[in-house]
């Protein structure tokens, strides 16, 4: 039986002077599973993500990682997070792809040989080994996203959370990112959570889907997804972009 990695216990969240965004949510994220997080704009997806990452605290309830409070779990370098904004870095930044990829790993590891070997391995996986010595600002958008993913994965976090990782990048990079995430999930047993509007990515993978809607979180998989989605999306979800359907 798969162990639990994260648990939401009766979590509610409300912004000061705002409405309740999430109400009495309880669910478990299991180790080594691949999850998709979907939901209409304003449903509370970003809030749920921030709660998972510990940048927001629940108004009620608690979130536990491996029996640890999020802050302590995060400080051990166990969480890998790739935000939508990560690509908005200073384009004049002189750091090379290799320097950027080892940034996260170097914080926790002092073994230079091991570090360099891990950076090479990860760069090879994302198809950027030949670009290792180029400044990251000189790469294309898709290549930059792959380098940033490599930075996140090289540090071998237990859980990888990605916010819209495929938005605005070329098809080749999308495919590589998708393959690398699956490799990381299947062969290294890492837990992956992808926030995406692109439902076809999530449905075509082995993903379990967390549907956020009206302050609630529902678990779906390929077999019952159609029943759980809001009415306007039913019947379209396998091939179309969820954004087109109801966002």
């Amino acid at each position: 039986m798969t162990a639990d990695l994260m648990e939401f216990k009766g979590v509610s969240f409300k912004y000061p002077n705002g409405p309740v965004v999430l109400e009495n949510i309880s669910f478990k994220i299991r180790k080594g599973e691949f999850y998709g997080l979907v939901g209409p704009n304003g449903a509370g997806k970003s809030t749920l993500l921030k709660l998972m990452l510990g940048s927001l605290k629940p108004t009620k309830g608690e979130i536990i990682y491996h029996d640890l409070e999020i802050k302590r779990y995060r400080k051990k370098g166990k969480i890998g997070y790739l935000s939508q904004e990560a690509r908005n870095f200073n384009p004049q930044f002189p750091g090379t792809v290799s320097e950027v990829v080892q940034a996260q790993l170097a914080v926790f590891s002092r073994d230079k040989k091991k570090l360099q070997a891990r950076v090479r391995e990860t760069l090879e996986q994302v198809g950027l080994l030949s670009k290792a010595d180029q400044p990251i600002g000189k790469l294309s958008g898709g290549q930059q996203q792959r380098a940033l993913l490599a930075r996140t994965l090289a540090a071998e976090p237990e859980i990888v959370i990605l916010d819209e990782p495929l938005t605005g990048i070329d098809v080749q990079s999308q495919r590589i990112i998708y393959d690398v995430l699956h490799h990381f999930n299947r062969h290294r047993g890492k837990t992956i959570i992808v926030v995406s509007h692109n439902l076809s990515l999530l449905v075509n993978s082995t993903a379990r889907i967390l549907l956020v809607d009206n302050g609630r979180v529902t678990f779906c998989d390929n077999t019952n997804l159609n029943d759980k989605l809001p009415v306007p999306v039913q019947g379209r979800q396998r091939s179309s972009d969820l954004k087109e359907a109801f966002f």
Partner: peptide, 8 residues
């Protein structure tokens, strides 16, 4: 932001 979530 990335550094913060990575545990720095």
């Amino acid at each position: 932001e990335g550094a913060f979530y990575a545990g720095v």
